[in-house]
Design a protein around this nucleic acid. Structure first.
Length: 468
DNA sequence: TTTTGAGTTGTTCGA
DNA sequence: GTCGAACAACTCAAA
């Protein structure tokens, strides 16, 4: 009986899954597989928050597959070797997967494809995770875009994303199941200590949770999106990022569901956020490993400062700037941070503290449930000024003004820093100026003076310009 | 080939 | 209190 292997990666869904549909259409039985691959050269191990999410997402996918009469086979190790073994064991005729775009995955997938084909086994990769393939979007001269606005304009001029594929109604299982790992043996969940209670409260990993989240966003929040998306105390962003990062929902599903509600300034703005994700993957594909390398090489000479205690204070939300600390505490508790606040804390780390953006990127990678190989490094580089289409160096966020502007009542700060809850809106973003400032053992004094730090950052950027 | 307009998200200063 | 200019020039994309 001809069997096909469908290799699930960052596409943990049944609906709109091109690899799954291709596998189903080409054979009488499908072997669904997930591989935890932390051994392939260059593969970046998942952070702690992502491991938590992955556990639950795999459990959900397995349950959904069982409802179709199948299940999810789990293996751990170098993916190429494991796929080859499974193909031999199950006598599969073809292996299907949806494409990944980082260097390490592409190298691995190319090798695997060649090796399978040389043994007479088919290997097909499909577009399942992006709206537009990186090689489909090019400037008039055939080069990749480096500026977002023309990039997105070019995308919008391409044929619109097509209708999402339906989830299969049933999935014929192979006669013999190869040996599978037990999910619990992967120890993806934290135990000592169990720091995931805030994550459990906030999130429902899995395809159903993703679809519910999208529906709720479109029904309730989208009309307020344009004006409210910058206010972290309001819940008008979609919070789809972790679902998207694990592929529990596809960008095409989001695009089509949003477009189906009609066009508006809000929907355009929201779709442009999908555009930023596309842009990041485009850059990752064309410019290689940007989690280490500065997109703008002149930044290789930037005088970053190593300062472990200061980095630790930032990570723990103890900088003395309420909007910064609130964001970092939200991240630590929930595995997620509002986009506006991500910019503020990233600007603070790289400009006020002069700490290398890579340290911030690694912290986000470890703590975010939506940690994404393209979005995370590229957005950090954008804030630091070394990225594509980056902010000019003199654009240094003032954490007091940002707080007052985007959290005018202080509701967001109060939620995450209860020790400041009694302060009035007029002083909550500058507690040291209050008539009764909190004592330092309750809430720290500012770790740097804003004015001094700003001057120091401008000087540092000037040295960069002179040495270039 | 050259030219031209534009570029996610800001802050500060001085009139 | 409000408003416009300065903060730098540079690179990108397209005409």
């Amino acid at each position: 009986m001809p069997v096909s292997i469908v290799w699930f990666r960052n596409d943990l869904r049944l609906a709109d899954n091109p690899a799954l549909i291709a596998g189903l259409g080409s054979s009488r039985a499908v072997l669904p597989v997930y591989i935890l691959d932390e051994e392939t050269d260059g593969a970046r191990p998942l952070g702690g928050a992502s491991r938590w999410w992955l556990h639950h997402s795999l459990a959900r996918l397995d349950a959904s597959l069982q409802a179709l009469g199948s299940r999810l086979l789990l293996r751990r190790g170098p993916a190429r070797k494991i796929i080859e073994e499974l193909a031999a064991e199950s006598e599969a005729h073809t292996v299907y997967w949806n494409r990944a775009y980082d260097d390490a995955s592409r190298a691995r997938d190319t090798d695997l494809k060649q090796s399978l084909r040389s043994r007479g086994i088919g290997a097909e990769s499909l577009k399942g995770n992006l709206l537009f393939e990186p090689w489909e979007v090019k400037t008039a001269t055939g080069t990749p875009f480096k500026v977002f606005t023309p990039f997105w304009r070019a995308c919008r001029a391409l044929p619109s994303p097509t209708t999402p594929l339906p989830a299969p109604k049933s999935l014929p299982a192979p006669a013999d199941w190869p040996q599978s790992d037990a999910l619990s043996d992967w120890r993806l969940l934290p135990t000592k200590p169990d720091w995931a209670s805030g994550l459990r409260k906030m999130w429902t990993p899995g395809e159903t949770g993703a679809a519910d989240r999208l529906e709720r966003f479109l029904d309730e929040a989208l009309p307020h999106y344009r004006d409210g998306r910058d206010l972290p105390a309001m819940e008008v962003t979609s919070r789809l990022s972790p679902h998207l990062a694990f592929g529990e929902i596809s960008p095409r599903q989001i695009w089509r569901a949003t477009a189906a509600r009609g066009t508006s300034a809000a929907s355009d703005k929201f779709l442009a956020e999908l555009g930023w994700r596309e842009f990041s993957y485009n850059l990752l594909f064309h410019f290689g490993d940007l989690k280490q390398r500065n997109f703008r090489p002149e930044f290789d000479a930037f005088p970053w400062q190593d300062n472990e205690p200061v980095l630790t204070a930032w990570q723990r939300g103890q900088t003395g700037y309420p909007i910064v600390d609130a964001g970092l505490r939200e991240l630590w508790t929930t595995g997620w941070m509002h986009n506006r606040v991500r910019m503020i804390v990233a600007s603070f780390l790289t400009k006020h503290l002069l700490i290398d953006w890579r340290a911030g990127e690694r912290w986000f990678w470890d703590t975010l449930v939506d940690a994404d190989p393209a979005n995370n490094p590229i957005s950090w580089q954008w804030v630091a000024g070394c990225g594509a289409d980056a902010a000019p160096y003199f654009r240094i966020f003032n954490p007091i003004l940002q707080g007052e502007k985007f959290d005018p009542q202080g509701a967001y700060v109060r939620r995450w820093i209860p020790e400041l809850a009694e302060l009035a809106p007029q002083t909550i973003h500058r507690p040291w100026a209050s008539s009764s400032p909190p004592p330092p053992h309750i809430y720290p004094a500012p770790i740097v003076d804003h004015g001094d730090a700003r001057t120091r950052a401008l000087d540092a950027f000037r040295t960069l310009k002179q040495s270039a």
